[in-house]
Nucleic acid binder design. Structure first.
Length: 382
DNA sequence: AATTCGATCAACCGCTCACCG
DNA sequence: TCGGTGAGCGGTTGATCGAAT
């Protein structure tokens, strides 16, 4: 069901490709204020010329505040390798069961995915807090796969290079070893007897890994670890109120009542009446242009300001906003310039812009995160 | 200094699943 | 029960960067 739908990104007038810092900030501002109950509606309400899918991906893989930046540690790599060996592809993980059971299921027409082994990267990501499935997938495809594959093993230590962005801007202080450099000496602090494991692993085909390998995963040694994570790991949608200070708190779902708004950084991030071309969205949506009032936004969620400043500061540095910025070039659509106003001049009422241009509302002065905001604003030259 | 090549990673695409009317 | 819609996932691609030549 649900097939045959036109790709959302194929819609005319929507941006594709790399995200600009402006877009990032707009997305952050919106999600911090309202959450992301509806990805499809989000870009329109946030004034982004992106499809919801793209927004979601950008948020999950790059903008989420609880992401861990920097290189993968040896332990993380080890975990990925082990879990990948266990989970295999979409259904292979079900091999943990007896073949007879699986055959019975097949004969009965039971989808093996009902076992819960439905996704690999997301399950692995669930075991590596702060890491995204996309990131893990990339790491696997770029070098971990070669490490465990006898054929692609060891292309020489000289091919090592540093991670260009993640390690550099995100967590310069993190002394985590380069993923590649760890290839030769993946000194894990796994359970004893693990020394030399790396070498044997290098020649071990993932499919040969068995359940006994569970013991090799450091986190699985933790009695607090719930193996169900591997099976039914709940997604961790961003909860504006929780992600900054209490990342483990479950996100309020679309059915949860919105938390009361709080003054603070949120005031800075009050989303504007987006002056985006309503006609454009009408064309895109095939629906009448809706009222743009954000006041009607459901699931308006409050955010906690604690730590938000630092997060934003770090993010701005990473986005290249930490310093003089070039004039934002707003995209030109196939029918000429997109009807969005000049980004900065016309965004006078845009708190996201004001965030950088002017400064906070008086109430903001009380906010502990304010200093970081001021710093960033000053450094942006506004 | 210029060019080539390989590695990396953000983003896109196509698909499936879950939910709802 | 069926079809539409949105969310999420895995696979793949393209841009970019740095090292090698």
């Amino acid at each position: 069901m649900g097939k045959g739908r036109a790709p959302c990104c194929a819609k005319v007038g929507l941006n594709k490709g790399s995200w600009t810092p402006e877009e990032d900030m707009r997305l952050i501002a919106y999600i911090r204020k309202y959450g992301h109950a509806n990805w499809r509606a989000l870009p329109k309400q946030a004034g982004l010329l992106r499809c919801g899918k793209s927004c979601r991906l950008r948020w999950i893989n790059y903008l989420r505040p609880d992401l861990k930046r920097g290189n993968f540690t040896a332990e993380e790599e080890e975990t990925i390798i082990k879990l990948h060996g266990m989970l295999g592809n979409k259904y292979d993980a079900a091999r943990c069961l007896e073949n007879s059971v699986l055959e019975s299921m097949d004969e009965a027409g039971t989808d093996r995915s009902s076992l819960g082994f439905v996704s690999r990267w997301s399950k692995i990501a669930a075991c590596l807090p702060g890491r995204t499935d996309n990131e893990i997938k990339n790491v696997w495809n770029t070098h971990l796969k070669k490490r465990v594959s006898p054929a692609g093993e060891e292309r020489g230590a000289g091919s090592k290079k540093k991670k260009k962005k993640a390690a550099g801007a995100g967590e310069p202080a993190a002394p985590s070893p380069s993923p590649s450099s760890s290839t030769t000496t993946a000194t894990t602090n796994c359970s004893s007897g693990d020394s030399g494991e790396q070498q044997s692993d290098a020649s071990k085909v993932p499919d040969e890994l068995g359940l006994e390998e569970l013991e090799m995963i450091p986190m699985l040694d933790d009695p607090a670890f719930d193996f169900d994570m591997l099976v039914d790991a709940a997604p961790e949608p961003y909860c504006p109120a929780a992600s900054v200070s209490v990342p483990t708190s479950p996100c309020a779902s679309s059915t949860s009542p919105p938390a009361p708004a709080r003054p603070g950084v949120d005031e800075l991030l009050d989303l504007p009446e987006i002056d985006i071309d309503h006609e454009l969205w009408s064309i895109i949506d095939g629906t009448p242009a809706p009222c743009q009032s954000n006041a009607t936004e459901p699931n308006a969620a409050s955010t906690t300001s604690q730590g938000a400043g630092r997060w934003l500061e770090d993010l701005e540095k990473e986005l290249g906003l930490w310093g003089p910025i070039e004039d934002y070039q707003y995209p030109v659509g196939p029918q000429g310039p997109i009807a969005h106003p000049d980004p900065l001049p016309a965004m006078v009422d845009d708190p996201v812009s004001c965030y950088f241009q002017a400064g906070p509302a008086p109430a903001m002065l009380q906010d502990p995160a304010y200093s970081a905001v001021v710093t960033s604003s000053n450094q942006l030259g506004f």
